[in-house]
Amino acid sequence: MEDDILTTLKILIIGESGVGKSSLLLRFTDDNFDPEQTLTIGVDFKTKRLNIDGNNVKLAIWDTAGQERFRTLTPSYYRDAQGAILVYDVCNYATFSKLETWLNELETYSTKRNIVKMVVANKIDMENREVSRDEGLHFAKKYKTLFIEASAKTRDGVQSAFEELVQQIIQTPDLWDSYSLGNNVSLGNKDHPAHTSQCSGYCNLV
């Protein structure tokens, strides 16, 4: 057990297919960029430690596994997440228009009322931009989310996107303070939040 860890947080990435969700994830966790996007087969979620304001937190960042494409993400994907990253592609207006649907989806399925949301405008390295920074900002203001422009390709904004999201979560203690339900059994060594008191609370199989 890493006992200097303040908490483990579950972060989701959602948004239309092709906007760069998996790319942002891999850039952040492995500092890697793969234009052929063959890397995410078998990747369920990635973990990374982050130090925010002197606190060590462990992130478990879940990728959609392609299930966003036909809107078949399962309710359990959303369950217990403390933070969500909503991505659109600045070169594809339709992906921006669809953000509202994704917010609704979050509203419907997230089990934590005050889940922190970060809108990421991705692919700003590209020429043919269709969504301006102002439009993105305006959207974020309207729905009270965080906002950043980024490029998974050039690294721009990627680290900040995750850091700012986590900072906000840390500042909302009732999102992560371990109010474990007690007596739950989890059969894997999953990186799941709120399992801090393993035995009096949740129980691990391995």
Binding site: D44, N183, V185, L187, G188
Partner: peptide, 20 residues
Amino acid sequence: FVELLISSNIARYSEFRSVS
């Protein structure tokens, strides 16, 4: 079932409570 969840590592997606 429990053995399959563990051996396949699907266990990470679910949580259980024991019948008390």
